[in-house]
């Protein structure tokens, strides 16, 4: 890159905290790959897909609550004994849990790192009122919905997995624990709000993954938004239905 002598207004600026490509390409490729924002977005999309898979399976399994306590508790129990005769009890469940934790970590880690980069990209904000045309509420609130859903998740684990946050927690009685938790109206409300936020997060994320992964074809591009909407709506309706069902006594 040759540029006429030092001329501050003519040379491209050095932006603090931004990518600084190294000449040595010796780093292992995942590290190299994750050093750019495009790479991080790709990783976010992949981990996003894994997390969406989890969210969907979790929602689908929980629908068993409408079949009654026996079915539901059997389902919960079966998760621990998946492939039991081959592996030790709980092995596969823990494998999946570790995988999920890893996905959460890289999803959130990438998001933090991208947010930092973007915060340095416009050090002086616009002084007039910006008018957004395309960036909808979901897109602009991803980092907030993401964090809220994350803290909700911690509570959710404390409530129904570990039992710390649930005074009536009984180990092994998943059905009873759910009912006990959702019978408190403020907890039910909290779950509903959190799941609506999750739905909003999925609405943008479910479309965004295609874009980040470069899955793009004019012929199918219309389907991408349709998929995101459908996915977000199904997951949200089902998840919101559980506390409502308890509150209205359909599940008790």
């Amino acid at each position: 890159m040759t540029q006429a002598t030092e001329r501050p207004g003519a040379e491209a600026p050095k932006v603090k905290g931004h990518h600084n490509p190294s000449d040595a390409k010796a780093k292992p490729w995942p590290v190299e790959f994750m050093s750019t924002a495009v790479g991080k977005k790709w990783i976010m999309a992949i981990s996003g897909i894994a997390l969406m898979g989890f969210v969907f399976a979790h929602m689908f399994g929980n629908l068993k609550i409408y079949l009654g306590p026996t079915d539901y508790n059997d389902y919960a129990h079966s998760l621990r004994t998946l492939l039991h005769p081959i592996f030790p009890n709980g092995f596969l469940l823990w494998l999946m849990r570790l995988g999920l934790i890893a996905m959460f970590l890289i999803h959130i880690g990438s998001a933090i790192s991208l947010t930092r980069m973007n915060q340095t990209s416009r050090p002086v904000k616009y002084q007039s009122q910006r008018r957004y045309l395309a960036a909808d509420f979901a897109a602009r609130t991803m980092r907030w919905t993401g964090w809220i859903v994350f803290f909700y998740l911690i509570y959710h684990l404390a409530d129904l997995t570990w039992g710390w946050a649930n005074p009536d927690f009984v180990y092994g009685d998943a059905y009873g624990n759910v009912v006990a938790s959702f019978e408190r109206w403020y907890i039910a409300l909290f779950y509903i709000v959190a799941n609506l936020l999750l739905g909003i997060h999925l609405y943008h994320g479910g479309w965004s993954i295609f874009q980040s992964l470069g899955v793009n074809s004019p012929r199918y591009n219309g389907i991408r938004r349709g998929f995101a909407v459908t996915f977000a709506v199904i997951v949200t309706i089902a998840n919101v239905s559980f506390p409502l069902a308890v509150q209205f006594g359909i599940v008790s």
Binding site: H19, K41, M142
Partner: peptide
Amino acid sequence: EQFFGSCTNY
């Protein structure tokens, strides 16, 4: 990426 922020698909 030396100069600009990242795309978040807005």
